[in-house]
């Protein structure tokens, strides 16, 4: 199934709809935490049943009907897996991020759509991650579209599901010691 083509065709909410404002603020605040690698706080924005996935993109013929690798992802994470990754960054020995990268998540093109359940929103966004390490290597970029489900909980809005459609079939980044 084509990732970018077959999604909800429903019109997005007007930009002054309170639900769109909630979703936009959520993504901007989330990016603020990710830029600063405040990952424990980021985890607190995720539901317990969160599903976080970044399929591998492949170049295929337009008629093939698919543009993601069947059966391979860069991430296919439940909460436990994400927690392990965050725990690792909190050790003193996650060398790939020590010294840390300078990160900037540029979030744009936010579209919010209602879902069947009142307490859920479907939110699409574009993200461009700029990552600079040290002083020798040129910076790396990662451009992606995201499709999120936000859910309202007693504690506020939480990310329940995210699919990240990275725009490269071959990543030009040394690893994914980052979140999008």
């Amino acid at each position: 199934m084509s990732a970018q083509v077959d999604r909800r065709q429903m019109p997005s909410l007007p930009f002054d709809d309170p639900r769109h404002l909630v979703a936009s603020r959520f993504l901007v605040d989330e990016a603020y935490l990710l830029d600063r690698q405040r990952y424990e706080e980021w985890l607190s924005l995720l539901t317990d049943d969160v599903w976080y996935r970044m399929p591998v993109r492949v170049s295929t013929g337009r008629a093939s009907g698919f543009d993601t690798s069947p059966g391979m992802d860069h991430f296919a994470e439940d909460r436990y897996m994400l927690e392990r990754r965050v725990r690792r960054f909190l050790t003193e020995h996650a060398w790939t991020e020590d010294p840390p990268s300078r990160l900037r998540h540029h979030v744009t093109n936010i579209r919010t759509s209602p879902m069947q359940a009142d307490d859920e929103l479907f939110v699409e966004s574009a993200v461009l991650l700029f990552r600079s390490r040290g002083d020798v290597q040129p910076p790396a970029f990662l451009s992606a579209g995201r499709e999120d489900v936000l859910r309202r909980t007693d504690g506020g809005w939480r990310l329940a599901r995210r699919e990240v459609f990275v725009d490269e079939s071959v990543l030009r980044m040394q690893n994914l010691a980052v979140f999008l």
Partner: peptide
């Protein structure tokens, strides 16, 4: 498959530190 994703490959936690070196 989960084990693979957590350890090796583009996002793997072993591999991340290898490539830095």
């Amino acid at each position: 498959y989960k084990a693979y994703l957590m350890c090796f490959g583009s996002s793997g936690m072993f591999e991340q530190d290898d490539v830095e070196n």
